Simulated assay, not measured.
Amino acid sequence: MLIRKLFKFESAHIVRGCSSRLCSRSLHGHSYKIEVLLEAHALDNGQMVYDFGLLKGDVRDLIDAFDHAVTFWDGDDADYIASCQRFSERWISLPVSPSAEQFSRVIFCLVDGLLQLTEMVNGEQDVRLHSVIAHETDTGYAQCFREDAYNPRMVAFELGQIVFAERIRQEWGDPQLFQRLLDGHARRNPQQV
């Protein structure tokens, strides 16, 4: 069975190397919709695949980090990167271009990492991330599956190459959230009542 949780954020980027001059040469923004799809072949104590409320903590914080942020590729022009960091307190440096395709991969890897480090205590069984869909516009989206997320032919990267601005990290419920993920520190889900 699949369940879907929808997240939304506003973000700006430039996508270098694409065919559209508007997108490759001009900073512009989108109203993103991110769909996180989880799957399991059994239900938990509440007869759910996974309690939607459990996605309102760390997962939401990491996805919300992109809200009102400038997202740039760390291989972009150094002056452009410096300007993004100078004029916006909310920025994210990615080791890949911030295209819809790469947004779906990056978010897949972030959420997948969190789920793998989550101690399930509500009878959840074999819950895993099925896919992430990144809607960049009303008519266009990219969907990342596990085989895409870790495919080096789609540009290999490590989570440790992502850099979140200090302001973003301060706004998380746990300012050490990303470091905890990188260090592989597990977190226990709250029990259902």
Rank of each mutant, 00 (worst) to 15 (best):
D61I: 06
L2W: 07
F7R: 11
D51E: 03
S99T: 04
T139K: 12
R187S: 15
S31Y: 06
F108D: 04
L129R: 05
A40N: 11
G53D: 08
P95K: 00
I3F: 11
I34P: 11
H130T: 08
F157T: 05
R16H: 15
F164K: 06
A82Q: 13
P175D: 03
T139M: 08
L110D: 04
Q116I: 07
S93M: 01
W91G: 01
D138L: 06
A165F: 05
R153G: 14
Y150L: 15
V36L: 02
T137M: 01
S83Y: 04
D58E: 15
F157V: 04
Q179R: 10
V59G: 05
A100M: 09
D76G: 12
E166H: 13
A186T: 11
G113C: 08
Q125A: 12
K33I: 01
E119P: 01
L110M: 02
H30Y: 09
P190V: 02
K56L: 13
N45P: 06
H30N: 04
A42D: 15
R187H: 08
C144F: 01
D67P: 02
D138Q: 12
E136Q: 15
D51Y: 02
F164P: 06
D77R: 10
V163D: 05
G75F: 01
E171D: 07
T118S: 14
L115Y: 06
L62Y: 12
H185Y: 14
Q116Y: 00
P152Q: 00
G140M: 09
L37G: 00
V163I: 12
Q179I: 04
R21C: 07
S97P: 00
P175C: 04
G160T: 02
L54E: 12
G173P: 05
R169A: 14
P175E: 01
F145R: 06
R169N: 10
G57D: 09
A82P: 02
A100V: 02
E136I: 10
E39S: 10
I63C: 09
Q102N: 15
D76L: 03
G160C: 03
E10T: 13
S31D: 13
F52D: 07
M1E: 13
L2H: 14
R86D: 10
D74Y: 00
Q161H: 07
Q176Y: 09
H13L: 04
R169T: 15
Q170D: 12
F103I: 05
R105C: 04
Q179A: 14
G46S: 11
F7V: 12
G75E: 13
E147A: 12
H28A: 12
V36E: 00
G140S: 10
R105F: 03
A69Q: 05
Q179F: 10
R187G: 07
A12W: 10
L54S: 04
V96M: 01
Y80N: 13
T137G: 07
V59N: 13
C23Q: 11
I133E: 09
